[in-house]
Amino acid sequence: MAIKQIEIYNYDPYKGRGNFVVSITYDENPISPITEYVDNDLYQAIDLGITKIVTAVNTQGKFFEVKTPRSDQYWNTKIDTIKSRKDHCKKGSNRWNRLHKTCIKMEAKKSNQIKDFQHKLSKTMIENTRANTIIVGDLNVKKMAQSKKVTGKRKRSQNRSTQNQGYLSRFIEFLTYKAELTGKRVIRIDEAYTSKECCICGKRHGMPLWERIMICDCGNVIDRNNVINIMK
């Protein structure tokens, strides 16, 4: 076992009142050998999103989708309320400390719920597919944020969704190591323009992130066009 990084942090760093946590990142040499990868000519393409964390298609043309439970939306409202109350308190007072500790607990619960859901989903997907090769788009969550030129509620809600729900890259990591343990392989490809190009004729359309249904001149009307282009 080779240790790569050690990080020590505190849930409530103010005067060290929180619990100290040690995070260790290491390369593990598994005791049992990893099953060797064999290409069985079966493939599954996956497109990741916000409202639908997974949209997938296999070589037989079978689609399936998984909606994101969005536990972050439930917790964000409560966390915002606590932060608003905390802003009206004197920093360091008993009331401020109590609200601060409550806010930290809510953040931890939100993060743990998302992580638990992704662990269970990635395990289910790996176990329930016969494809030994899984293709996913190399998602860059930071680039999904809207520019400052975009104004209004849509920009704020979408930026918060992509960044707070931006555990999508972590979900790919879960898929990758679970696949390797079962003799499967996850391949990342550049998904540039996969959402803008028609999967039938290849015509490129101007598709902002909030528009999911493509209507092409060739007669193709489809939702989540990305996953087909990722498979192709």
Rank of each mutant, 00 (worst) to 15 (best):
E180K: 13
V136T: 03
I3W: 01
K155H: 00
S157L: 13
D39G: 05
C89I: 03
Q158D: 01
H100A: 09
C216L: 08
V57F: 02
T162N: 15
L42G: 03
I34S: 08
H100N: 15
S157E: 10
K101R: 14
F117R: 04
H88Y: 05
A192Y: 13
E107R: 00
I24N: 04
I114P: 03
D39E: 14
G18E: 02
V22F: 07
C201Y: 02
N220P: 01
G92V: 01
K52I: 01
E180Q: 13
T102C: 09
S147E: 07
I79A: 05
R160G: 12
N220K: 14
F63K: 13
I172P: 07
N29S: 08
D223K: 11
L99S: 05
N10W: 01
L175I: 09
G61D: 12
G16C: 02
D12Q: 10
V57K: 05
E197P: 02
N76C: 04
T25Q: 11
S93K: 02
I6W: 02
A179D: 08
L175A: 08
K178A: 11
S161F: 10
D47T: 07
Y9E: 01
L181R: 15
V66A: 09
T68R: 11
S32W: 02
Y177G: 08
I230A: 03
C89D: 04
G202H: 07
E65Y: 12
G16M: 00
D27Q: 15
Q163H: 10
I215L: 07
V221P: 01
S32C: 05
I215R: 12
A108K: 03
D12M: 08
H100M: 04
F171T: 04
T35K: 15
H119V: 03
V221D: 06
K115C: 03
M144R: 13
N159L: 06
Y167Q: 14
I189W: 02
E191F: 03
M144A: 11
T133D: 03
I215W: 02
F64E: 11
V54Y: 09
N40G: 05
N94L: 12
I82N: 00
N58Q: 09
V38I: 15
K153M: 09
F63Q: 11
K153P: 01
D80N: 15
K105L: 04
D80C: 04
R130L: 13
Q113C: 07
Y11F: 10
T182F: 04
Y37T: 05
S195M: 10
S93T: 07
V227F: 07
